[in-house]
Design a protein around this nucleic acid. Structure first.
Lengths: 115, 115
DNA sequence: CACTCATTCAACCAAAAGGTTGACGATTCA
DNA sequence: TGAATCGTCAACCTTTTGGTTGAATGAGTG
């Protein structure tokens, strides 16, 4: 399992920003266009576009132009190297739903369930 | 568990640097002094000291002065929120994703992404 | 064609990150 | 006391980050 330092750099750096984490959370539910993803945020579309470029460069998402919109899809596997890195630090058993629910409720970082 | 968005910010940001990840890995073996931790790196002690300050601010390590030496200890639990956040995405396969989505919709009060 | 919509590019800006060096406080020991 | 050791602080520098605005590109639509 070869995951280079640079991969981890970009993955962790991409996740260090709350806007990008929110985007990733949002994309967990379904694919979305750039405009969809930008809508909840109080910042310019260009700023969101930059965040998406960072996520793309980190391999966390992929973008696909379809007509005049651009669909963004979460690349779930791309988070595995970072997740594996962290697993080295102890008893983080796989995906504990209760803990996840508590976490998401606490942080206010959960994606909107409607849509 | 009280873990705010800011906690994830600082945790992921702390892990985004390879020097800091190496320090964290090193501390997994056993506690170490600042000097010990600095020794492998080709940078000034002050630079390492800054990295340790960042890790401390993120809650990933704790420092304890003992005589003229300062011991650093990994705070393993502090990585848990970030690990849980990531495993939610890194370890789910397509089937589990449906379960996660159902869970999120179940909570009903999930807020929109912030900022 | 002209127009609008969706997205990006380019230039710019302020703030933060990551490093340096040199001075400093605290501690230990001869 | 005086000197060496451990670590941090302060000032500085360069690069990156995260945002802005306005112009440009690309794709449907009347």
């Amino acid at each position: 399992m070869d995951c280079s330092d640079a991969d981890l750099d970009t993955a962790f750096a991409a996740l260090a920003d709350p806007t990008r984490r929110a985007i990733v959370s949002r994309l967990l539910l379904n694919d979305a266009t750039v405009g969809d993803l930008a809508q909840p945020f109080d910042m310019s579309l260009a700023a969101v576009s930059k965040h998406l470029a960072i996520l793309t460069r980190a391999g966390l998402i992929s973008q696909n132009r379809e007509g005049r919109v651009k669909w963004c899809r979460l690349n779930i596997d791309s988070l595995r190297p970072a997740a594996i890195w962290m697993e080295a630090f102890g008893s983080f058993d796989a995906a504990d739903l209760d803990a996840l629910e508590a976490l998401l409720e606490d942080t206010g970082n959960a994606p909107s369930p409607d849509r």
